[in-house]
Design a protein around this nucleic acid. Structure first.
Length: 301
DNA sequence: CAGGCTTCCTGCGCGC
DNA sequence: TGCGCGCAGGAAGCCT
């Protein structure tokens, strides 16, 4: 559920609290939340305890905190993950899986709670490797240090997201033209373009008037560019609504966050009129999940 | 080898 | 009322 805009709101929200902070304590309440942690590196807690966080970086839906050890704490929210900042001593949140006690030189002590109902999300300490192109690995709000050209090993196969300044539109369009699959599958393939999930895929396809099963390779270069522009526009709008103000971000990391549902045109709106032509929107099963579309505006060609 | 299906998970809402 | 089923979907891993 959390897609690029939601993860970016989390990243921006935690950045001031974690950058420069030392991890003073680690409590793991649910081992399954460490599924993506490689035990061969050492115990999760020991790899964090006493070490300093250098930044908060995001690529697509992956978030990571580079550490002074040369490694990083990788966070993925999965379906239901949340990162919440709390005052020390606060009652445990429901479905609290992992808690980090942070000691920040300016802001003092703060708890970073990783909450996750469905346990599809995870935290892991990971090694870092240089990016293939030598460019910054992802987005962060600060000037890059040595960490900026490094990417966690388990994120290395994830493509740059369409809001990344180093995203290559021409490479993406060329990859689309080679794909022997439907356009929605391609949009959801994080190795082609990252950050898009089921909700914004449906929204972008509606904006570009494309059916989810339209073969990716059948799109004209012009149509593919229209789709990419729609993706960027939808992600940017959601991002803007997610809070350009610090207050909005703070609310978010305090759990008041919501979805940007007020801006959705088709997702979850089956039976309601299409915003363009008035035809009732439909929901169809596809890829073991639901696709929302206007049967008139989005015809398979 | 790439495409696509299965599995992992829990809380909620609905129908019987 | 209470039970049980379906549904929500990100991504690794496995199968074809």
């Amino acid at each position: 559920m959390p897609e690029l805009p939601e993860v970016e709101v989390v990243r921006a929200g935690v950045e001031p609290a974690v950058t420069g902070a030392v991890i003073a304590g680690v409590e793991v309440f649910e081992d399954r939340s460490l599924r993506r942690h490689d035990r061969a590196l050492g115990p999760f807690g020991e790899l964090l305890q006493g070490h300093r966080v250098l930044a908060a970086v995001r690529r697509g839906k992956f978030l990571w905190l580079p550490l002074d050890t040369g490694r990083a704490l990788v966070v993925h929210l999965g379906m239901s993950g949340q990162v919440l900042l709390r005052s020390p001593g606060t009652d445990a949140d429901a479905q609290l899986r992992i808690r980090l006690a942070l000691d920040h030189p300016d802001h003092g002590e703060i708890w970073l709670n990783f909450v996750d109902q469905r346990i599809f999300g995870s935290m892991a300490v990971d090694t870092m490797a240089p990016t293939r192109d030598g460019l910054p690995a992802g987005f962060s709000g600060r000037a890059g240090g040595a960490w900026s050209g490094l990417i966690p090993s388990q994120v290395a196969h994830i493509a740059r997201d369409p809001l990344d300044v180093s995203f290559s539109a021409s490479s993406f369009l060329a990859a689309l033209a080679r794909k022997k699959t439907g356009i929605k599958r391609a949009l959801l393939d994080q190795t082609l373009i990252s950050g898009i999930g089921n909700i914004y895929a449906d929204e972008a396809l509606f904006a570009a008037r494309l059916h989810y099963e339209q073969p990716a390779a059948s799109l004209s270069p012009a149509k593919a560019r229209v789709l990419l522009a729609a993706v960027r526009s939808i992600l940017n709008r959601a991002l803007a609504e997610g809070g350009t103000s610090f207050d909005a971000q703070y609310v978010n990391v305090n759990g008041q966050s919501g979805y940007f549902s007020h801006s959705l045109s088709v997702y979850g709106r089956q039976g309601k009129p299409c915003p363009v032509c008035g035809t009732p929107l439909v929901r169809e099963q596809f890829m073991n999940r639901s696709s929302h579309l206007c049967p008139r505006c989005q015809r398979l060609r």
